[in-house]
């Protein structure tokens, strides 16, 4: 449960980052999922998905216009 899974969704266009994140959510009911994205749209969409599915969401700006979305659920 405490495993961290990283989803590298950089370079993927909408809605693929949401699809990839949802697949991981379906496979594990909790823990930490780190999603790397490179558009504001993807950052917002993955955050929306996370909150809707009951995960705590935090986001962090990375260099070069990339973002890290961290999803936590105990």
């Amino acid at each position: 449960m405490s495993d961290t899974i990283t989803v590298d969704a950089r370079g993927l266009s909408c809605p693929q980052p949401v699809v990839e994140t949802k697949k991981v959510m379906n496979a594990q009911a909790g823990g930490t999922i780190v999603v790397l994205v490179d558009t504001v749209t993807s950052r917002e969409n993955v955050s929306r998905l996370g909150r809707n599915q009951g995960w705590d969401v935090s986001t962090e700006d990375l260099p070069d216009g990339e973002f890290r979305v961290v999803l936590n659920k105990s």
Binding site: C14, P15, V18, V40, E44, N45
Partner: peptide
């Protein structure tokens, strides 16, 4: 679908 983050870039 909006709640699931299935929002197209144009809408943002």
């Amino acid at each position: 679908k909006a709640d699931l983050g299935l929002i197209p870039a144009g809408s943002y």
